Amino acid sequence: MKIIDEMLNLALLSADQHQQISAWMAHADTPEDILKMPAPLWRAVERASEIMGIDDDLMRPPSLDADDMVCL
């Protein structure tokens, strides 16, 4: 939900889209239920994700030189 909120704050989603997506996610019991979100809402999330570079962040390998990294 935090990412959806950020999309709204960056004006990548309208208030109506944010409300509809948030409501859909709140009532989804499983990830499969989320995947059943209406296509126009998915397209809005995909566009916002692309602009935010979310896929790029997920594909980037983890930084092994992080100062605060804890190895267990």
Rank of each mutant, 00 (worst) to 15 (best):
M25I: 14
T30V: 04
S22M: 07
A15Q: 15
L10M: 13
P61T: 04
D65N: 14
P62S: 08
E6K: 15
Q20E: 13
C71A: 11
Q19L: 11
A66C: 01
W24V: 02
M69I: 07
G53S: 03
P31W: 03
A15W: 10
L12V: 15
E32F: 10
M7Y: 05
I4Q: 07
R60P: 00
D16L: 13
L13A: 04
A23Y: 08
M37T: 01
M7A: 12
I4K: 02
D5M: 04
I51E: 08
S63G: 12
A23W: 03
L8G: 07
H27R: 11
R47F: 00
L58G: 10
D65P: 00
A44S: 01
C71P: 04
M37H: 02
E46K: 15
A39P: 01
G53C: 04
D65S: 07
K2F: 11
I54V: 06
M1T: 14
E6R: 14
L72I: 09
I54P: 00
L8R: 09
D68G: 03
D5L: 07
N9I: 09
L41F: 00
L13E: 08
P62F: 10
L8N: 05
Q19F: 09
I54A: 01
W24I: 05
N9E: 13
L72V: 10
I54R: 02
A39F: 07
D29V: 04
M59K: 13
E46C: 05
I34N: 01
A28Y: 03
D29K: 09
M25Q: 13
L10F: 13
H27E: 13
L13Y: 05
E46L: 14
I54C: 04
I3A: 14
D57P: 00
M37R: 01
M1V: 12
G53D: 09
S63M: 06
D56F: 02
E6F: 15
P38W: 03
L12W: 11
M7D: 08
I54S: 02
G53A: 01
W42R: 14
L35F: 08
D5E: 09
M7E: 13
M52W: 00
L12I: 04
D56I: 06
N9G: 08
E50Q: 12
D33P: 07
S49C: 15
M59A: 14
L72C: 11
A48S: 12
Q19C: 12
W24A: 11
